[in-house]
Design a protein around this nucleic acid. Structure first.
Length: 585
RNA sequence: GCGAAUGUAGCACAAUGGAUAGUGUGAUGGCCUCCGAAGCCAUUGAUCCGGGUUCGACUCCCGGCAUUCGCACCA
C-alpha cells in the first residue's frame, strides 16, 4: 500500500476529483480540508457547508453526493462519515497508519517526504544581526533562535537557505565611538577587554551627545568621515568589528548556529549610490529638509512619515543599506524569498522598506521576491517589564546561557547523582540551552513572554526537560529490549495499531506532516512545539497503558514500532528547533 | 495625536472562520511487587466591553477600554 508523507494533500486532491465527478460547479467548490478534533477524525472537510449555502442547497445532501463519488483509494484508507450540518470526517484506518509508519522510518525518509513542500525554492534568512561594538544581550536571543529554527524547517522541507548575518556595523554608533575614542579612551582598559572598552566609550559618547550639541555634531562628522573612507576612522572601525566578531562567533557556536555570510551594513556601502540614483530617477525619492526621503501618498501614515534613505549630512543609514541589501539578495543569491527576523519595534521601518522596494523594483523591472518580516515580542522579567539585571543593565547572553547550564547541572545532579560528572555536564548543556531555546520557540512569537527559570526548567508542562525526558524513556525501552532504535529487526513483522493508546499515538505521528506545512506556511515554530508536546503526552499515556516489553512477539514488535517512530519524530522535530536530544538524563 | 502588537481560568500559555474553547501550574482525590513516578488518570476554573458580518466568530469588520512599542535624520 503506497501512502504519501502528507496524506492531507492527497485527500484534498481526491476531494476535488470527487467534486468534479459529482457535478459540483467547477471552481466553486473548495474542500476546506482541516485537521480534525481527534474525537471526530483525523481530517475534516468543511467545504460542503459553504458550497451548499451559496447555492441554497442542503449541505448534508452535498456531503452525501461527495461521499458517494469519493475515489476507491480514499475509502480504502479512511473511515468516512458525515456529521452535524455537513462536515465530512475522515479517520485513518489502522492499515493506513501502519503503512505510513513503515514508509517513514528514518530522518532521511521523513525529509524526502517533506522535501516536496519547498523544493527548488531559495530563501535568504536574515537573523541574529547584532550591532558591533556591543556585547550580545538577551534582546538578541529571539532573532537567533527563531531564525535558526526557520532555516532548519525550510531546509527540511526542501528549500535551499542562505543564512545571512546582517551585522549593524556601519551606523551612527561608529560616529559616537570615534568621538569617544578621541575624548575618553582608557588605553589600559582597551588592552584588557577591548569590547568592554568600546562599549563604555559608546555609552560615554552617547551621554556627551545628549548633553552637548557640539559633541553630537562632532560625532556626526566622524561618521561621515568614516563613510568617506578616512584611513584613521576606517582603521578603528575595522578594529572594533574584529573584536566584536571574535566575541560573537563562540556564542553562535555554542548555540549551534553557522552563518553562511556575515554581510553587514558596511558590505553595502559602495552599493547605496545606485539606490539613491535609481530612486531619484524613478521619482520615488525626493529631497526633504536636506535629506533624501520616500513618502507613500497612498498610505495613511507613510504619506507624512518619511522613509529617510539618505541623511541630510549625506551619510547613509539603515534604510539605504537595507534597500541595497534587498537587491543583492535577489540578484546575487537569486532569492525567491527574503525573510528578516527582528522584533516588532521595527515594523514601521520594514513596512516602509517593502513599500519602497515594490515601487522601486517595478520601476526598474526587477523580479519581486516574497518578503516576510518575521516579528517577535519582548522577553519580560517576572515583574512583567523588559528583562534586566538587578542593576538595570541588559542581561548578557553569555551570562544567561551559562546560568542555564549551571541550573540544569544542579537539577540533573539532584535527579541522577549516580551519573558521572562529565555526563551530567553534557546533559546540563543539552537541557539548559534546550530549555532557553524551547521557551522562546514554544510561544507564539508575536507576543511578549515572561521569562522564568522555574518555568522553563520544569519537568512538567510544555518544556524542553519534559520532551527530552520522553526521549530518554523511549531510549531506555530499547536499551532494555536489547535493540538499537533504528534496528529494523526490533519491529519486524509489526502489524497495525490495536489498542486505544496505540491508535491515538499512531494517528498523532502521521500528523507530523500537517504540522510541518502549518509551521512553515506561517513561520511560527510554536506550532511544531505544541505538536511535539502533544506527541510526548500521547506517548506517556500509551506507555502507562500498554507495556512494550512483553512476551508475545507480535505485540512487542507492534509496540516497538510505535516507540521507534515516536523517538524518530521527537528527535527530528527537536533537532529542527535546534535542541540536542539525549539517550539518558 | 497617528499607527502597530497584545488582551483567553488566580498565574503562565494553546486554539490555519468549524462541532462541547485545549494544556500546564495551583487546589482536591486516585495510580509504583509492573519498560525511568522527571510520569499517568480524574475533578475544579476563562474568551476585555459594545455593535456587526457569517449556516458557524477567541479568530474577520466597526467603535471603545487596557498594556506595551513605534512615529525626521539610532538600528
Amino acid at each position: 500500500m503506497h501512502v504519501s508523507f502528507n496524506i492531507a494533500a492527497d485527500l484534498e486532491a481526491a476531494m476535488q476529483t470527487a467534486a468534479f465527478t459529482a457535478g459540483l460547479e467547477p471552481g466553486a467548490f473548495s474542500p476546506e480540508l482541516r485537521p480534525a478534533d481527534p474525537r471526530h477524525g483525523d481530517f475534516q472537510a468543511n467545504g460542503a457547508l459553504g458550497y451548499a449555502k451559496s447555492r441554497q442547497l442542503n449541505p448534508r445532501a452535498v456531503a452525501e453526493q461527495l461521499l458517494a463519488t469519493l475515489p476507491r483509494a480514499v475509502r480504502d484508507a479512511f473511515d468516512v462519515n458525515i456529521a452535524g450540518p455537513g462536515f465530512i470526517n475522515f479517520r485513518l484506518k489502522p492499515a493506513t497508519l501502519l503503512a505510513w509508519l513503515n514508509a517513514y522510518d528514518s530522518a532521511e525518509h521523513l525529509k524526502s517526504g517533506a522535501a516536496t513542500f519547498y523544493s527548488g525554492r531559495h530563501y535568504v534568512v536574515d537573523y541574529g544581526s547584532p550591532n558591533t561594538a556591543k556585547q550580545m544581550h538577551v534582546g538578541h536571543i529571539r532573532s537567533i533562535i527563531i531564525g535558526e529554527a526557520i532555516c532548519r524547517l525550510l531546509e527540511f522541507c526542501g528549500a535551499s537557505v542562505v543564512r545571512d548575518n546582517h551585522l549593524g556595523d556601519w551606523g551612527t554608533q561608529f560616529g559616537k565611538i570615534l568621538y569617544g575614542y578621541r575624548h575618553f579612551l582608557d588605553r589600559d582598559a582597551l588592552e584588557r577587554d577591548p569590547l568592554e572598552e568600546f562599549e563604555r566609550l559608546y555609552k560615554a559618547a552617547d551621554l556627551a551627545c545628549k548633553a552637548d550639541p557640539g559633541a553630537l555634531e562632532e560625532s556626526r562628522l566622524a561618521l561621515v568621515r568614516l563613510q568617506q573612507g578616512e584611513p584613521d576612522a576606517v582603521a578603528l572601525w575595522q578594529q572594533v568589528n574584529q573584536v566584536s566578531t571574535d566575541v560573537l562567533k563562540p556564542l553562535y557556536t555554542l548555540l549551534g548556529v553557522h552563518y553562511d555570510h556575515f554581510l553587514g551594513e558596511s558590505f553595502y556601502r559602495d552599493k547605496v549610490g545606485q539606490v539613491y540614483h535609481e530612486l531619484t530617477t524613478a521619482g520615488i525619492a525626493e529631497e526633504s529638509q536636506g535629506a533624501l526621503v520616500v513618502f507613500h501618498p497612498e498610505h495613511p501614515r507613510f504619506a507624512q512619515q518619511p522613509f529617510i534613505v539618505r541623511k541630510s549630512d549625506g551619510a547613509s543609514n539603515y534604510a539605504s543599506t537595507d534597500l541595497a541589501t534587498m537587491v543583492y539578495r535577489v540578484e546575487h543569491f537569486a532569492a525567491d524569498g527574503v525573510i528578516i527576523v527582528t522584533d516588532t519595534r521595527q515594523n514601521d521601518h520594514l513596512e516602509q522598506l517593502w513599500l519602497t522596494t515594490r515601487k522601486w523594483f517595478a520601476a526598474t523591472g526587477r523580479r519581486l521576491p516574497e518578503f516576510h518580516h518575521v516579528t517577535f515580542g519582548t522577553i519580560l522579567g517576572e515583574d512583567g517589564k523588559a528583562i534586566k539585571t538587578r542593576s538595570g543593565d541588559p542581561i548578557r547572553l553569555k551570562a544567561l546561557l551559562a546560568e542555564a547550564e549551571e541550573r540544569a547541572f544542579a537539577l540533573v545532579t539532584e535527579k541522577s547523582p549516580e551519573l558521572p560528572e562529565t555526563e551530567r555536564r553534557d546533559i546540563a548543556n543539552a537541557v539548559g540551552l534546550g530549555a532557553v531555546r524551547y521557551a522562546d520557540l514554544s510561544q507564539n512569537r508575536s507576543s511578549d513572554y515572561i521569562f522564568s527559570w522555574e518555568k522553563i526548567l520544569s519537568f512538567e508542562g510544555n518544556t524542553a526537560p519534559y520532551l527530552l525526558y520522553a526521549v530518554t524513556r523511549i531510549q531506555s525501552i530499547f536499551r532494555k529490549a536489547g535493540f538499537d532504535p533504528a534496528d529494523a529487526a526490533a519491529t519486524a513483522g509489526a502489524t497495525g495499531p490495536e489498542t486505544a493508546g496505540e491508535i491515538t499515538l499512531a494517528r498523532k505521528l502521521v500528523g507530523f506532516a500537517t504540522v510541518l506545512t502549518l509551521t512553515t506556511a506561517q513561520l511560527r515554530p510554536h506550532f511544531l512545539c505544541t505538536y511535539l508536546y502533544e506527541l510526548a503526552g500521547e506517548f506517556s499515556t500509551f506507555y502507562v497503558a500498554d507495556k512494550v516489553i512483553v512476551d508475545d512477539p507480535a505485540v512487542r514488535a507492534r509496540r516497538l514500532l510505535l516507540c521507534a517512530r515516536t523517538l524518530l519524530v521527537l528527535e527530528t522535530g527537536l533537532n529542527l528547533l535546534g535542541l540536542r536530544t539525549l539517550a539518558r538524563m
